[in-house]
């Protein structure tokens, strides 16, 4: 099972802060496509190149293959400091 979490504007657009789904062996790009089918706000929030992805708290590229129990986070470009 994978925990998928959303932050900031991405979370506000999709309307949930986390999901529990079994998505191992899928690439991040495939997961983005699958989640985008949930509706317009999802596809807007998860548009490739605008959404960042971290797996187990480390930034990854969209071609990363998800492993069992990976924690996957989606969020917009960061604006701290």
């Amino acid at each position: 099972m994978n925990k998928i979490i959303f932050f900031a504007q991405t979370r506000e657009l999709v309307g949930v802060d986390k999901l529990e789904l079994a998505v191992d062996q899928m690439a991040i790009s495939q997961l983005l496509e699958q989640l985008s089918l949930r509706g317009n706000k999802w596809s807007l929030a998860l548009k490739e190149k605008t959404v960042l992805c971290a797996v187990n708290q480390t930034l990854v590229n969209y071609d990363y293959i998800i492993q069992e129990d990976d924690e996957i986070a989606f969020f917009p470009p960061v604006t701290g400091g």
Binding site: F7, A8, A54, F75, P76, P77, V78, T79, G80, G81
Partner: peptide, 23 residues
């Protein structure tokens, strides 16, 4: 590096409403 990689996000409250700060 912090400005580009640390996962913080700012939401601004202005006199005319709220908005997420863009990178």
């Amino acid at each position: 590096i912090l400005k580009n990689e640390a996962p913080f996000w700012k939401k601004e409250q202005t006199v005319s409403g709220q908005n997420w700060v863009k990178a």
